[in-house]
Computed example of a mutant assay.
Amino acid sequence: MMTSQLIEEDLDRIERTFNLDLGRIRKDSAGEAASYYPQIEQAFRAEAREMAPHYEVFYSLERTIRTLVADSLVAADGPSWWSSSSRVPQRIKDDCENRLKREGDAGVTLRSEDPLDFSTFGELGQIITSNWDVFGALFKSEKAVARIMANLNTLRGPIAHCTLLAEDEVVRLHLSVRDWFRQME
């Protein structure tokens, strides 16, 4: 059994190194996905594997920023900060609530009932900079935060819309994430 596991690990490494699909059945391709995933071009599957770590970084960062925004504004104005304060520009409120309604009208499971979860990355940046009285204590520079958020918003495009992130942009993503956290030191 141990020998089989070691062989499987070696085959996994060979597939990654040489960008191959040896057609082995893996846990992640079992079940329902196994019926359609093999029909997708190998090149697209390889690109997906290459992009997965960047998606994970961006997903985690965006969720972290949403939580930071919500927690900070709850601390400033209480749990009804979204509806009872002027912390969120009305246009952003309207757009988020319209997206929430549109998703509900589509008959799919709502991703969330929190309108903040329907804000775009750019809107999150606007909420932070328009509430600098709250966020200024967390960050070193409003201009730097605005620039970093703009960079991240630009980088979000290829990640969210399933195109490859150029090598330079991978570096830019990592630097932007470092810049974000450096602003909070």
Results as ranks from 00 to 15, higher is better:
Phe118Met: 01
Asp95Cys: 07
Ser86Gln: 12
Thr120Glu: 04
Ala144Trp: 06
Pro115Lys: 01
Ala144Val: 09
Ser72Lys: 09
Lys140Val: 10
Trp81Arg: 04
Leu124Tyr: 03
Arg102Phe: 05
Ser80Leu: 12
Asp77Pro: 05
Val88His: 02
Pro115Ser: 04
Gly78Asn: 08
Asp71Ser: 15
Ala76Arg: 06
Glu103His: 11
Ser85Met: 06
Leu116Gly: 00
Leu116Thr: 00
Ser85Pro: 07
Ala70Arg: 08
Lys101Tyr: 10
Ser80Gly: 12
Phe139Met: 12
Arg66Trp: 04
Ile92Leu: 10
Ser84Ala: 08
Ala106Cys: 13
Leu124Gln: 01
Asn131Ile: 02
Asp94Glu: 12
Ser130Val: 03
Ala76Gln: 11
Ile92Cys: 07
Leu124Thr: 03
Phe139Asn: 08
Gly122Arg: 00
Arg91Cys: 02
Trp132Arg: 06
Val74Glu: 10
Gly107Phe: 09
Leu116Asn: 00
Phe121Glu: 02
Ile92His: 03
Leu73Cys: 09
Gly78Phe: 04
Lys93Arg: 14
Asn131Leu: 04
Leu100Asp: 07
Leu138Trp: 14
Ala106Val: 12
Cys96Gly: 06
Glu103Val: 09
Lys93Asp: 06
Pro79Ile: 09
Asn98Arg: 07
Ile127Tyr: 01
Asn131Gly: 06
Trp81Ile: 03
Gly78Cys: 08
Ser141Trp: 14
Gln126Asn: 05
Ile128Met: 04
Ala75Trp: 13
Glu113Leu: 12
Ile127Asp: 00
Phe118Gly: 00
Glu97Lys: 02
Asp117Pro: 04
Lys143Met: 13
Glu103Pro: 04
Thr129Cys: 02
Gly122Val: 00
Phe139Tyr: 13
Ser83Asp: 11
Gln126Val: 08
Ser85Phe: 09
Ala76His: 03
Leu73Thr: 06
Gln126Tyr: 00
Lys93Glu: 09
Gly125Glu: 01
Glu97Ile: 05
Arg99Asp: 10
Gly78Gln: 10
Ser83Thr: 11
Phe139Arg: 12
Ala75Gly: 14
Lys143Glu: 14
Ala137Ile: 15
Leu73Val: 10
Ala137Pro: 14
Ala137Ser: 15
Asp105Phe: 07
Asp77Met: 10
Leu73Ser: 06
Thr109Pro: 01
Lys93Val: 05
Lys143Gln: 14
Gly122Gln: 02
Pro89Phe: 03
Leu110Gly: 07
Ser112Ala: 08
Ser130Trp: 00
Asn98Pro: 01
Gln90Ile: 07
Gly104Phe: 12
Gln90His: 02
Val69Asn: 03
Ser80Gln: 13
Leu110Tyr: 08
Ala144Phe: 03
Ser84Gly: 06
Phe135Ser: 13
Ser72Arg: 11
Ile128Val: 11
Phe139Lys: 11
Glu123Leu: 00
Val69Leu: 15
Ser85Val: 06
Trp82Pro: 03
Glu142Pro: 07
